[in-house]
């Protein structure tokens, strides 16, 4: 479904160039859960951004169902991201001034009738275990776990093929982390393709494949539970 071929990426820094990714090869099949682990600053988020069409690699191709996404125009790539990709972030990235419900419908805000979107959003929020009384609330008034569940609902609003999650449990306590992991497992069972970047091995182990990113190189990780 998604294949990354020979991906390299480096950044300019004061002392020269920092090579973050070196000739990365990765293939993710439909319905697979792939976890990418690695120490801080190893380039996990960079890899996620490249895979989701947000950041141009210096070299290499990212293909989604045989379409090289970096050969698409900016506009086409945005549309592709909206329709095929869902994002979940460590810091939730909810708009502070929109209600919970409005945050969820935000990705398709300009594309679909609002009442249909709201209906769908409510269903998703129920699915995520968010109480209806919180729908009109501002994100600031929610707990961390609630915020992340709202963020997952937003990621799912367009019914994407792939869910990219960048440290989704990094800001959560143990209980909320477990809750989110359960949700991911449900989504995985329902057939969602998942790419999860995490430090947390307890999250990573639910994946079909775990990759470790060290010194810019990606390698299959051995998992001991």
């Amino acid at each position: 479904m998604i294949s990354l071929k020979n991906i390299s990426k480096s950044f300019h820094i004061q002392s020269g160039r920092l090579e973050v990714l070196k000739n990365i090869q990765l293939a993710i099949s439909k319905g697979e859960w792939v976890s990418i682990v690695g120490p801080s600053g190893s380039g996990k988020s960079t890899l996620l951004h490249i895979a989701s069409g947000l950041l141009h690699p210096d070299s290499g191709d990212v293909c989604f169902n045989d379409t090289n996404i970096y050969q698409l125009t900016e506009r086409q790539r945005s549309n592709w991201r909206r329709n095929h990709i869902g994002f979940v972030f460590q810091d939730f990235k909810l708009l502070p001034y929109y209600s919970v419900l409005d945050n969820v419908i935000l990705p398709l805000y300009y594309d679909h009738p609002k009442h249909e979107l709201r209906k769908k959003a409510k269903k998703l929020l129920h699915m995520m275990g968010i109480d209806e009384s919180l729908f009109s609330r501002l994100p600031e008034s929610l707990s961390g776990g609630e915020k992340q569940r709202v963020a997952i609902a937003r990621a799912l609003i367009a019914n994407p093929d792939v869910l990219f999650c960048d440290e989704p449990t990094g800001n959560l306590d143990h209980e909320n982390r477990n809750h989110i992991v359960q949700l991911f497992c449900q989504l995985h069972i329902q057939g969602k393709t998942m790419v999860v970047v995490t430090h947390d091995m307890e999250v990573a182990v639910h994946a079909n494949h775990i990759y470790r990113l060290v010194n810019g190189m990606l390698a299959r990780a051995e998992v001991r539970i």
Binding site: E74, R75, S78, R82, N83
Partner: peptide, 19 residues
């Protein structure tokens, strides 16, 4: 700033952000 970055991530085109 972060808000506009997020719009891009969730798939809003430049035109939509401008609008």
């Amino acid at each position: 700033k972060q808000e506009f970055v997020m719009y891009r991530m969730i798939g809003w085109t430049k035109g939509k952000i401008v609008k």
